[in-house]
């Protein structure tokens, strides 16, 4: 494992911790898209099915279990425990518009036509667009709390760091996987507009507010 990959994983873990702490400490999930969180839970469950069949390393197993468990916990907090604070009026993105095309794409473009491999490919495609309901929610309300912005920045950085990891692995190990690279580029590009606002506003102590 190289430093980009490790930083990417840590950034991903940090994003999840920030989100969980925000919801737990404020007893509220206002400003967070439950739709995106459902999509992330689907992403981790369908991607990490190999937990049952393949042992890679203790690190790998630990992280996979953490990602599955925390994604389910976040959905539970949003839809059960702190349901009253959930911003469902603004969280109106239709997730079937993401689920169906990514499933069809996974059936068409994959490394191997087996159930586990297709679900893995589906999870890669779905992850690349899973943040759209969240970005849609931010654009609808026109603003995001700073803690939500920190969460989005850490989450966006994670796949960006993975891109550097893939460049490194391509030159170092001659390893590459076009499916994850293309999906990773799409995923990172979707955050670019947000990254710009984060750097120009949130880091200068201002609230993330979209221009009217």
């Amino acid at each position: 494992m190289n430093v980009f990959r490790l930083l990417g994983d840590l950034s991903h873990l940090l994003a999840i911790i920030v989100l969980l702490l925000k919801i737990w400490k404020t007893r509220s999930c206002a400003g967070i898209s439950g739709k995106s969180q459902i999509l992330f839970a689907i992403v981790y469950i369908t991607r990490y099915l190999d937990l049952i069949t393949t042992y890679i390393s203790a690190y790998n197993m630990f992280m996979k279990i953490i990602f599955i468990a925390t994604s389910i916990a976040i959905v539970y907090l949003m839809y059960v425990k702190f349901k009253a604070t959930y911003d469902h009026n603004h969280d109106t993105f239709r997730i079937e518009f993401l689920l169906l095309p990514t499933l069809v794409l996974a059936l068409l473009i994959n490394h191997e036509f087996t159930i586990v491999e297709i679900l893995w490919t589906f999870s890669i495609y779905l992850e690349s667009v899973a943040i759209l309901p969240q970005l849609f929610l931010v654009s609808k309300t026109g603003e995001a709390e700073s803690i939500t912005s920190h969460y989005l920045f850490a989450l966006g950085s994670y796949r960006g760091l993975y891109l550097l990891n893939w460049i490194y692995r391509y030159y170092g190990e001659n390893y590459y996987d076009l499916i994850v690279i293309v999906a990773g580029i799409v995923q990172t590009v979707l955050y670019c507009d947000f990254f710009y606002l984060y750097i120009t506003k949130v880091l200068k102590g201002k609230k993330l507010q979209l221009p009217a």
Partner: peptide
């Protein structure tokens, strides 16, 4: 072609 049986990345 990547090894589809062993996925070490997350």
């Amino acid at each position: 072609k990547p090894d589809v049986q062993s996925k070490d990345e997350l």
